[in-house]
Structures are given as structure tokens and as C-alpha cells.
Design a protein around this nucleic acid. Structure first.
Lengths: 137, 137
DNA sequence: TATTGTTATACTCTATAACTATA
DNA sequence: TATAGTTATAGAGTATAACAATA
């Protein structure tokens, strides 16, 4: 394994955790992108597509389809932003908040399980590295 | 941004770095999975599909298509493993090694740029966390 | 019986470009 | 002119199940 590379380790961890997460949330029948979107919206704050795109690292063209499905499902609403009528405020509905809470719970549990033996210092190092990586593009 | 979550930060960093990497390697005309596969094979060691699947976190059904394209392109060969004739040894060809070297160079450069200001201790923390995450599934 | 890898299917994600509406 | 978001298209990734060959 080429685990000395920061980026290869990142890819590997992403794929493995995504599979674990979709399996843990199988009863909600969500795709990885839908899970990611709900987890980001879970704080209850409204966002527009551009902000969600930055938060998830997903392109707006991809988010259109993801949001279509979440909206059709009654989890998310798109409302015209009166302040800038080119954009929408994305907001969770009641059922959307319920689903998002389950997603966050699964995320939290997976993190707690995986990271049980690690120190705060190691976690701080992790966050410093991923923050630096995410700013390359 | 919900940057306090280890998993959300992981997703975000993955998407952003993948876009930067495919852009940096645009002249090779490779997809993200092809880049990941070449980067993993770049050490010159032969692997079978199962090992590559563990290294990348990608399913074997997905790898079949990725390897088909890399093979058609003359970058990778599949040879029956005499020791276990259910599986193949995947090996880079000459042109494959050249492409893989470019991929690794781009990976290395991106890492060097992004992580310039970080300490060895922070990097060690990062590796501890991603290793722990990758073992959840 | 279990494992390796491929095939098949249907759906989702991605890249790119073009487009509308608004700023 | 620039930005927000959608649409369109084609190709790539994903999950699932079924399958042949080998162990």
C-alpha cells in the first residue's frame, strides 16, 4: 500500500467511509451525495447552491440533480432569495430535518467508533491538513 | 461550514483535491479513478484486482471498467497469475510507467504546495486519523 | 463451498458547454 | 459583463445480483 501519500490515503479513506456510511443508513435509501448534502444542511442554516457547492466540493451541475431528488422527496425546499433573485435559499423541511439528524447521528457514531483511540492533538493535525488540502482548488 | 466533522471535511478535501489533480493532469486525459489507479500502481509492484480494490477503496466491478480503459490504452497489462489462476497480476507497461510517474509528480507537487506550512507532527496526526477511518469498512 | 474477477442493468455522478435570469 | 443556477449530452462511477472459473 502506498500509504505514505497524503492524497492516496485521503482517497482510500473517503471511499471506505462512504461505503460504511451508506450501509449504516441503508434504510433511508440515500446516495452518497444525498447523504453529504443532508449532513451539511443538518445545522439548520439556509444556504444557496454556491455555498453548498463549496461546502461539499461538488459542482453546481451535480447538485441540481441531487437537490431535485431531495426536493421531490420532500426533504428540501428551494425558495427564491428576495435579496438576490438569481439564487435560492435551500432549507430542510420537517422530514428533511429528521433524515438529516439520522445522517448526522450515523456520521457521529462512525467517527466515534473509528477515532476512539486517537488524541486531540492528532485530530487537530488532521483538520489542519484537510483544511490546507481543500484550499488547493 | 460544518468543518468540525471529520467525515465532512474528508469529503470536501477529496472533491477539491481531485478537481485540482485532474486539472493539473489535463494533458494526460485521465479520469479521477484512472489517476488513482495509476498512482497506486506507480511503485512498480504488481497487484491483483482485489489488492488494488483495497488500496483504492474502489469496488472490483468499478475497477473492471477502469482497467479495461487503461489496458486498451496500453498502460496496464492483465496476466493470469500462475499461482492462483482465478486472478490477474496487474502491471504497468513502459508507457504506463511514464504516465504513472507524471501522476505521482503531480500528486507530490500538490501535496508540497498545500502542506508547505505544516509540521511533521500534524502530518502524523493526519495519517493516524485517515488510517483509523479507512478501517471502518 | 468460498473466492476472483467479469458481465449486466439501472441509476447516479461528472465534465463541458450553452442557456436564462438577474446583478 | 459577471454571476447564480439549470439544462443537455455523453461518458464514467456505483450498487446489486448473477455468473464462470478456480480454489
Amino acid at each position: 500500500m502506498v500509504s505514505d501519500s497524503v492524497l492516496l490515503a485521503l482517497q482510500r479513506a473517503t471511499h471506505h467511509t462512504l461505503q460504511a456510511l451508506t450501509a449504516a443508513l441503508a434504510d433511508l435509501d440515500l446516495t452518497a451525495s444525498e447523504i453529504d448534502t443532508l449532513a451539511n444542511l443538518a445545522d439548520g442554516r439556509s444556504r444557496n447552491v454556491r455555498e453548498l457547492s463549496l461546502d461539499t466540493g461538488t459542482r453546481s451541475t451535480t447538485l441540481t440533480g441531487v437537490l431535485d431528488r431531495l426536493e421531490r422527496r420532500g426533504y428540501v425546499t428551494r425558495e427564491l432569495d428576495p435579496g438576490d433573485r438569481r439564487s435560492f435559499r435551500l432549507t430542510l423541511t420537517g422530514p428533511g430535518r429528521t433524515a438529516a439528524r439520522k445522517v448526522r447521528a450515523a456520521v457521529t457514531e462512525l467517527e466515534a467508533t473509528a477515532l476512539a483511540g486517537l488524541s486531540a492533538r492528532q485530530l487537530a493535525g488532521y483538520h489542519a491538513v484537510v483544511s490546507a488540502l481543500q484550499e488547493v482548488s
